[in-house]
């Protein structure tokens, strides 16, 4: 039971936090909920894959892959650009705390910690970007063919 709360509760928090960000980015109506759900889904993937293999660069990659698949599908269903859903749903994963901590070490002149945190942050950001780009690119090749066949 405790295991389940430890996984599901953060997902709920990230759902609500993403809804808040959806409002800040001027997203209206049903779209806000789509963003929130994407955020929760991404964080769920992250936590599960972190349990399976540890670390945080690889789980971030998998979470980005799942979020991009979700966002591309939603964008196709609602016929609008994928940008908004993707950006907001990625927010809980985005290494904001990493950059902040790195700069805090920098100002406190702890150079070793600063360099390692900064490089780690870049690693996570790159993993997110590559994961999202990879699955978007693959989906853009696959989805039109699928719908084309369904049309015939």
């Amino acid at each position: 039971m405790e295991q389940i709360t430890a996984i599901l509760l953060p997902c709920l928090w990230s759902f609500i936090a993403c809804v808040g960000f959806g409002l800040v980015f001027n997203i209206h109506g049903f779209g806000v909920l789509i963003c929130g759900f994407g955020g929760a889904l991404g964080w769920l993937t992250y936590l599960l894959s972190q349990r399976a293999m540890g670390g945080d660069v690889v789980p971030a990659f998998f979470a980005a892959v799942v979020i991009a698949i979700y966002a591309e599908t939603m964008a196709r269903i609602r016929r609008c650009p994928v940008t908004g859903y993707l950006q907001v749903a990625l927010l809980p994963l985005v290494p904001g705390a990493g950059i902040y901590n790195a700069m805090r070490y920098c100002v406190a002149s702890e150079t070793d910690l600063f360099i390692s945190t900064l490089l780690h942050t870049f690693g996570v950001a790159a993993a997110l970007a590559i994961g999202a780009m990879l699955s978007s690119t693959v989906l853009r090749i696959i989805l039109p063919r699928l719908s084309g066949k369904a049309g015939k």
Binding site: A17, F21, V24, Q87, L90, L91, V94, P95, G96, A97, G98, I99, Y100, T121, F122, A125, A126, L128, A129, I130, A132, M133
Partner: peptide
Amino acid sequence: TIGTLMVLVPGMALTNAMREIVN
């Protein structure tokens, strides 16, 4: 502090930057 700073922090900008570079 970190929760509040999330609304200012450029994590999104960094990820977008990486996406532009990969693109």
